[in-house]
């Protein structure tokens, strides 16, 4: 289809991570799928303008984010941003406790992180972009990316700790006798 770029390979390589990024932005599976499709649609239209194949990933994530923001602006539906107090010392969360959470729970926890930090964090985890590429996608200095990642991770740990705590609180331990009868 393309002279230099194999489109099918690009879709196969990036569609899942783009979908996850879209899901974290839109928080809606249908919108996430639409955003992912729209991103590849734009890519198909402009692929000949991308001369460096190594920039494709960064281009796709930048485009998806722009499309999301465009949609948000057109709907005049700015996401509510709740600013939380800064957390300097994140609460400890054991790896086992963390592993006990499923993907959806981690994704939900991610959505509770301040938007300012969340987008950098999502790009870090979901796209596995480098801090330089994240800076490019978000059009901010690299120092700001590092700062947002650092603070974002602290908030994510705090949110995940809460999730683990909430989950454990819901589990009511059975009395010893009842346990024995099973």
């Amino acid at each position: 289809m393309f002279r230099d770029i194999n489109f099918e390979d690009i879709v196969s390589e990036h569609y899942a991570s783009l979908y996850r990024f879209a899901l974290s932005l839109s928080r809606n599976e249908v919108d996430a799928a639409d955003l992912t499709q729209q991103t590849f649609f734009i890519f198909a239209q402009h692929s000949r303008q991308i001369r460096d194949a190594s920039k494709v990933k960064c281009w796709l994530f930048t485009t998806l984010r722009r499309e999301f923001l465009r949609g948000v602006r057109s709907q005049n539906n700015h996401p509510h941003v709740e600013f939380k107090p800064e957390i300097h010392d994140s609460p400890a969360i054991s790896p086992d406790a963390l592993r006990s959470l499923d993907g959806k729970a981690v994704m939900d926890a991610m959505t509770k992180v301040d938007t300012t930090y969340r987008v950098a964090l999502e790009l870090f985890y979901l796209s596995e972009l480098s801090y330089k590429e994240i800076a490019q996608v978000l059009e901010i200095p690299v120092g700001t990316v590092m700062s947002r990642l650092s603070r974002g991770k602290e908030q994510l740990k705090a949110t995940l700790s809460e999730s683990v705590f909430e989950r454990e609180r819901k589990i009511i331990p059975l009395p010893r006798d009842e346990k024995a009868s099973h």
Binding site: V11, Y15, L126
Partner: peptide, 30 residues
């Protein structure tokens, strides 16, 4: 922590028909 978060997030799978829908749409565009 990063590895576990990454692993958990990557466990979220896109809808099974998404890839074919993208490819079909893109082929039509092309």
């Amino acid at each position: 922590f990063d590895e576990i978060v990454l692993e958990r997030l990557n466990s979220v799978q896109p809808p099974p028909e998404l890839k074919s829908a993208i490819l079909t749409g893109v082929r039509t565009t092309m």
